[in-house]
């Protein structure tokens, strides 16, 4: 970074949605003037407001590096991670921060993820095996043998950080709360494509009129995903298997005995 980058300090107007559901207060927008530099993120600006102007501002964040998925919000109308969005890249004089759409508001920019996680849990997001990998009685331990090609089939989808941006951007979620949403459906494909998974009933979970068939491929989920997961791809591939167009010729991963001695 050059010295000029450190010296230049412009100001940006931050327009923040305020509401406290606990106190049944009416919603309104607060405006704050915040200094920023070339690399200042929207989260930095919000923390500046919380630290120096209004400590009552409610935001949720943790890692500040797009790994935890906590600071999702609508920035200028589009769901984004605040820690991953630089003010200089937005190229606007006013930045509008609102809570993620399709998530119930708790307070200010903090939303309730309960339904989102229920949908995620509902698709059984874990490897299912017909027998135990670690058999205590036999005192044997096994590992799975997967080729790099096998891993490539699901790895992309395993990068999901559950930030909820795709769920917020999906127009179908907004009209059907029973629809699992792009995150859960893409995760279902992630486990379905995994050669270690032996579940027979996984696809039945979303074979429902409120399930996978409600996706109409608006592609907004993939557009807003900050980790390149591409949920729309996973959903369409999953639907292809469910329609019988793609053949499920998955070979189960070979179990190899591991000698721990």
């Amino acid at each position: 970074m050059s010295n000029n980058d450190n010296k230049i300090e412009d100001k940006i107007k931050l327009k923040v949605y305020r509401e406290n559901r606990g106190q049944n207060s009416k919603s309104y927008y607060d405006s704050f003037e915040v200094p920023y530099k070339r690399w200042t993120t929207v989260l930095d600006a919000l923390l500046y407001v919380k630290g120096y102007i209004d400590p009552s501002l409610a935001i949720r964040y943790s890692c500040r590096m797009a790994s935890c998925g906590s600071c999702g919000m609508k920035i200028n109308g589009i769901p984004r991670l605040a820690c991953y969005t630089k003010i200089s890249e937005l190229e606007t004089s006013t930045i509008e921060c609102e809570p993620l759409g399709n998530f119930p508001i708790i307070r200010d920019l903090v939303t309730d993820f309960s339904l989102f996680y229920k949908h995620h849990k509902n698709i059984q997001p874990y490897i299912q095996s017909t027998e135990s990998v670690e058999t205590a009685a036999e005192e044997k331990t096994y590992s799975y043998n997967q080729s790099p090609q096998d891993v490539d089939k699901y790895l992309q989808f395993s990068y999901c950080i559950k930030c909820g941006l795709c769920y917020s951007a999906c127009p179908t979620v907004g009209t059907d709360l029973r629809f699992p949403g792009p995150q859960a459906l893409a995760q279902l494909y992630r486990y379905f494509a995994d050669t270690r998974d032996e579940s027979k009933n996984r696809l039945n979970i979303v074979d429902d009129r409120h399930g996978i068939w409600r996706c109409h491929f608006a592609g907004s989920c993939s557009k807003v995903c900050p980790k390149g997961v591409d949920p729309a791809l996973g959903i369409q591939l999953l639907r292809s298997y469910m329609l019988g167009v793609s053949k499920n010729n998955k070979k189960q991963a070979e179990k190899i005995e591991v000698n721990l001695d």
């Binding site: 809570p99 907004g174 399930g211 608006a218």
Partner: peptide, 30 residues
């Protein structure tokens, strides 16, 4: 599919969500 309890429709975008076109690409327009 397991029945999922409906929360209060607080902040769900409904049909308004359909009308949001800018920033989501041509696939959303389509």
């Amino acid at each position: 599919m397991e029945e999922i309890e409906h929360p209060i429709r607080n902040n769900f975008e409904g049909l308004r969500g359909w009308l949001k076109l800018s920033g989501y690409g041509w696939e959303r327009v389509s």
